[in-house]
Nucleic acid binder design. Structure first.
Length: 253
DNA sequence: AGCATTGTTTCACA
DNA sequence: TTGTGAAACAATGC
């Protein structure tokens, strides 16, 4: 499920339900999810502490604790979610904090591409996709000769946009995903930024990146929700991409 | 059986 | 230097 909207929901859930509770147990035995840490390393850093804040840039979450310990970074990967005070799932709870009050916070992940890591490296992320200023967005997203869709999904450029959101955003902005990033006019980049913000807001409100209008149609009837034209499909930026060949502009204004 | 997948990283290659 | 495609990672669903 996870793109920025899902990560934001997870952050809000943690902020609402997990802060202030004392950590009395840490299950960090999944050495793939907790890589590069050895089993027990996260426990050593977290036991006895309380979570004091839940933060996010793009898809990356990090939790601060009281005392001087490192932050706890959490990433939902391809299929993860945060489960708080839910009955344990023996198979899919890949990393778990248990609290003094008997409750628990689990990184529940069917696949195992989620991550729990100490002192996450945030320096490699661009500004959060919903917070980038207009000037930042123009400068960062509008650079380079690669496809605009690949640019939008590059977490080092702006953080938070994944495959579904990228298709939805470009469809909303009526821009062809194959356009070179540096071919977009400033007006188009500004429109793109507005579409990014709108799509994220909409997805957070409506339950996730899955709630986009284009997404619902892409494999349902394969037609553009606005004009009914058959959607095009191709691999762009390494991911399957859908767009409307009639409405999404191939060339600048 | 085979293929695809809301993510990230690394590597070969142009 | 920049960009791209593929593979690896893991596990599930169609």
């Amino acid at each position: 499920m996870p793109e920025l909207p899902e990560a934001e929901r997870a952050r809000a859930l943690i902020a609402d339900r997990a802060l202030g509770r004392r950590i009395t147990g840490v299950e960090d035995g999944d050495s793939y999810v907790c890589r590069p840490h050895a089993p027990g390393e996260l426990a050593g850093a977290l036991l006895g502490r309380r979570l004091t804040s839940a933060n996010r840039i793009g898809k990356m979450l990090w939790l601060e604790t009281d005392g001087a310990g490192p932050d706890l970074g959490l990433h939902l990967g391809m299929a993860g979610r945060i489960a708080i005070d839910e009955p344990p799932h023996a198979l899919w709870d890949r990393f778990v904090l248990t609290f003094a009050d008997g409750g628990r916070l689990a990184l529940r992940d069917k696949r195992r591409l989620g991550r729990a890591v100490l002192a996450p490296d945030l320096a490699r992320l661009g500004p959060d996709a919903a917070l980038a200023t207009r000037a930042e967005f123009r400068a960062r997203v509008g650079r380079g000769g690669g496809a605009i869709k690949a640019r939008l999904m590059d977490q080092g450029v702006i953080a938070g946009v994944g495959n579904l959101l990228a298709d939805e955003i470009l469809w909303q902005a009526r821009i062809d995903p194959r356009r070179a990033a540096n071919d977009l006019s400033e007006a188009e980049l500004d429109a793109l930024r507005r579409a990014v913000r709108a799509a994220i807001r909409h997805a957070i409100r409506n339950g996730g990146a899955h709630s986009g209008a284009l997404i619902a149609h892409r494999e349902r009837d394969g037609r553009c929700p606005r004009c009914g034209a058959p959607l095009s499909r191709a691999r762009i930026g390494g991911r399957t991409t859908y767009w409307c060949p009639d409405e999404q502009r191939t060339a600048g204004d």
